[in-house]
Each structure stands twice: as C-alpha cells, then as structure tokens.
C-alpha cells in the first residue's frame, strides 16, 4: 500500500518522464535569471518606516509611533482602548510592557487553546517587518512566542523596533530569516471576501491588529494614531469596504 513501494513507483515514473533531460545535466545548469529587483526604490530609514506604516494601515492594521520609554504607556493605552482585562505574552517580552493591574499570563506549553481563547489580548515583538508589503514576520523567538499565542486572542499588539527590524522588500526579509524556525507572516488582520466579495475583517485570527513602531527619535509623549478607521468597533468593521481575498 503505502511506504517504500509507492516511493519507488513514483520516483521511477518521474525518472522515466524525464527521459529527455540529458543524464549529465545538473539542476544548477537550468538557467534561472534573477534579474528582478532586490528592492523597489531607494529609501532612507525614515521613508522605509513611513511606507511600512502606510501599507499596514492600507490593510486595516492600526499603526502607532512611540519612543522606547513611552512604550509601556502606549501599550497600556491600547489595552485600555480595547477594554482588555487579560493579556498573554511570550517569555521574552519585558514585564514592563504590561501595565499594572492587568491579568498577565505568560505563555507556556501548559496553556491550552481554550485557556488562550479566554484571554483578551496578546503583546509580542517581531522578527522583521517588510515595508513594501506591509508585513510583520514572527519567527517564534523569545519575544514572539509560539504561533498560537498570536492567533487565538482577538487582539494583537505587535511591537516593531525601527529602524533595525524594518526591511524594504520580501527578498531582504527572507535573507534574514531561518527556515528551520516556524514563521507567521502577518499582513493586516485576518480577512475574508468569500461572501459576494465583500471584505470582512476577522474571521479566525485576531480581528484587531495594533502595530507599535518604536523609534528613538519619536516624541516621548503620547502615541499617535496613524490609521483611519481606528475608531471602528470590531465586528462591524469592513462592511461595504472594497474586497480583498
């Protein structure tokens, strides 16, 4: 049935199918011209962060800017705005990011999906952010945690260190990432257009995605709200909006 029998069958069929390929041809000899661009345009670090913010907002993520010192206050503000009373964080997220008085759960293997489902928000860092596509990549490092923590709670706050974690393009992002680590690439909150192509935000993943861009030169004061539609209450968002996959 299965096992080595079919393995040999399939491989033998493939080899017979390729009878026209010269025996001494090596894979690298089949030409692949990589003359596409590594980046689409030259940008200063500031322009790169600006583009990231624009593209994140395009896909209905809420973008905020703050300095390292103002980060805890910014996070506290977002949790309060959301009305979350509990928050889960991976082990590498500093205690200081989570405000006093909040039920703070550290993720561990013992935490079941159902327990995660009862938690309001998750706060993580990220591995790299891609400006051209508005993408955050999490690679399960200490400050990003297991893939499920950023999936089951309905509200995700993702902290990006600017400029060092921001790259221009997909090729640059892949260069920085290790395929051996499980990854989640996130471009805006989850969405569907399956019903008459009407875009609806949030089917299964977090319905609200807050991205905090932390820069040394950002004002030490309050976070700024970049995105339109930040006032959308979740669940009702996206009605009548243009469709997207």
């Amino acid at each position: 049935m299965s096992g080595s029998g079919s393995r040999e069958t399939v491989l033998a069929r493939v080899r017979r199918a390729l009878a026209d390929v010269p025996r001494d041809e090596r894979p690298e000899q089949v030409k692949v011209a990589r003359d596409y661009l590594r980046v689409h345009g030259e940008r200063t670090p500031r322009e790169r962060a600006q583009l990231l913010a624009e593209h994140l907002a395009d896909y209905r993520a809420h973008v905020h800017h703050c300095s390292p010192a103002a980060l805890p206050r910014t996070v506290a503000g977002l949790l309060a705005l959301r009305g979350s009373r509990s928050v889960v964080t991976p082990p590498g997220v500093p205690d200081a990011w989570v405000p006093e008085g909040m039920r703070h759960v550290r993720d561990s293997a013992a935490l079941s999906p159902r327990e995660l489902d009862a938690i309001g928000s998750v706060v993580t860092g990220c591995a790299v952010a891609v400006a051209e596509t508005g993408t955050l990549v999490l690679d399960a490092s200490e400050d990003q945690g297991r893939r499920r923590v950023t999936l089951v709670p309905d509200h995700h706050i993702c902290v990006v260190r600017v400029p060092e974690q921001v790259v221009d393009s997909v090729p640059q992002a892949l260069e920085r990432l290790d395929p051996a680590r499980p990854q989640t690439w996130i471009s805006g909150p989850s969405a569907t257009s399956d019903i008459e192509l009407n875009r609806v935000e949030g089917v299964h993943g977090p319905r609200t995605l807050d991205v905090v861009l932390v820069t040394d030169d950002a004002a030490e004061t309050e976070s700024t709200e970049d995105s339109e539609g930040a006032e959308d209450s979740e669940g009702a968002a996206g009605n009548g909006a243009p469709p997207r996959g």
Partner: peptide
C-alpha cells in the same frame, strides 16, 4: 496574482515539528 494584494494576510511556514510549538 491571486487576491491582488501586496501580501496575503497570513503565511505560515513550518519545518518538520517544533518542540512545544504546533
């Protein structure tokens, strides 16, 4: 080409199994 997006909302990559994740 598919959904006409710069990038789709979620892409998952995994390599075999990972201790305590997935």
């Amino acid at each position: 080409s598919s959904t006409a997006e710069r990038m789709n909302p979620y892409t998952s990559t995994w390599t075999g199994t990972t201790e305590e994740d997935g």
